[in-house]
Computed example of a mutant assay.
Amino acid sequence: MTSMLYTHGSTPLFASQVDQRLHYCLHVPRELPDLPAPLVVIQHGTGRTAQKYRTAMRDFAEEHKVVVLAPLFPAGLIDPDDVHNFKFIEYRGIRFDLMLLAIIDEVAARYPVAADRFYLHGFSGGGQFTHRFLFLHPQRLAAASIGAPGRITLLDDSLPWWLGTKGFQERFGRSIDLDAVRRVPVHMVVGSEDTDTFEINNPGESNWMNGCEKTGRTRVERLDTLRRNFESNGIKVIFDVVDGAGHSGSAVLPAVQRFFGSLIGR
């Protein structure tokens, strides 16, 4: 069928039916197992390179017979100058965690995927989204891979959101289920040379809070701070530092694929 050209393999960008300002693309192997296929979600960062990440995961999808979903949450929603919206989960009434879950429901209505528990990786701004999504929906995650977030949220009720989790329940309508978070396999990954600081040390801009500087000078240091915070709360972490890599999502993707590959089909 002609439609198979567009619904299988690497697909075009589709508008989400829950909010047509939001989009997604997929890689769907033409042959899937009879059982629901694992679903791997790759969340882009500030550059919105959803299609690039989807294409980079194409061979992995074919080898492991998984469906890869790459959401696209555009910059400039409401505020034409905004580029950060999805990273902090809620933006001007848009709950990006719920939007992702709605997109997954749309995908599950079309393809035989295991939508109840999926694999989530995000790099840079996507890494910010991923660890905050983990706090909100651990029961939906088969695993979480957190790549090089420039700003982190610590499990610390003495610090205001988003530096910490003070007021989390009032903000999001649910508390953090730490026992459920502890059951999710967690991977953190960053390049050893991810040490540029101009973008992540920017007091006065919309994605800055005083106190952020205390979590580390570089993304390497900040991710290590997040690791130590997780481990102090009983959350086991596999921590990968990719030798020689800078701030590059594609450079750390092989480590992500090894992590997910070790879990899929177990």
Rank of each mutant, 00 (worst) to 15 (best):
T195Y: 03
I103T: 03
F123T: 08
G122T: 00
Y53R: 11
F86L: 02
C212A: 13
A144N: 11
V242Q: 03
L253K: 06
L178R: 10
D82K: 04
S232K: 13
K87G: 15
V41W: 02
I152Y: 10
L141G: 07
A245I: 09
G265Q: 09
L22V: 00
E170P: 01
V252N: 04
I146D: 12
Q17H: 10
F123E: 07
E231W: 05
S248P: 08
L32F: 01
V184A: 01
R140E: 00
Q43C: 03
G204K: 03
R171P: 00
Y6P: 15
C212N: 13
R227Y: 01
T195V: 11
V68F: 03
G167Q: 07
L5C: 12
Q17T: 14
H64C: 03
H137N: 15
L141I: 02
A142F: 00
Y53L: 14
A251P: 09
G122K: 04
A37C: 10
H187M: 06
G204R: 02
G45V: 07
L35K: 11
F135G: 00
I235T: 12
E170T: 14
R219D: 07
F133N: 04
S250A: 11
K236Y: 03
D34P: 08
P74C: 03
R48K: 11
R258E: 14
I146K: 05
Q128G: 14
F198Y: 14
R58L: 15
M209F: 13
Y91A: 09
R132T: 00
R92T: 11
I152F: 09
R171Y: 00
A114T: 05
A148P: 12
I176H: 15
A114H: 09
N201D: 07
L155Y: 12
A115N: 10
G216T: 01
I152M: 08
A56N: 11
P149Q: 09
M4E: 14
F172V: 04
N207W: 15
Q20L: 11
K87A: 15
V186H: 01
Y6I: 15
M4H: 12
V237N: 07
R140M: 05
K166H: 12
L134W: 13
H187K: 06
P112K: 13
G249C: 10
S175N: 14
R174D: 05
L159I: 07
D105L: 02
N207Q: 10
G9M: 13
P112H: 08
R151S: 09
L69M: 03
A143C: 00
H247V: 07
G47L: 08
A61R: 03
V40Q: 07
P112A: 14
V189Q: 03
L13F: 14
A114S: 15
S232Q: 13
L13Q: 13
N233K: 14
E193I: 01
I94W: 07
D179A: 13
P203V: 01
G191I: 09
L26D: 00
E213D: 05
R92Q: 15
K214I: 05
K52H: 15
E205L: 10
H247P: 04
L32H: 02
F14V: 09
L163P: 06
I146N: 13
V66E: 07
P36H: 11
G261W: 11
D82A: 04
N210C: 06
D156K: 07
D243T: 12
V186G: 06
E205P: 04
P38A: 05
H8T: 11
R21M: 02
A50K: 08
L5I: 13
G265S: 01
L5S: 13
L69R: 10
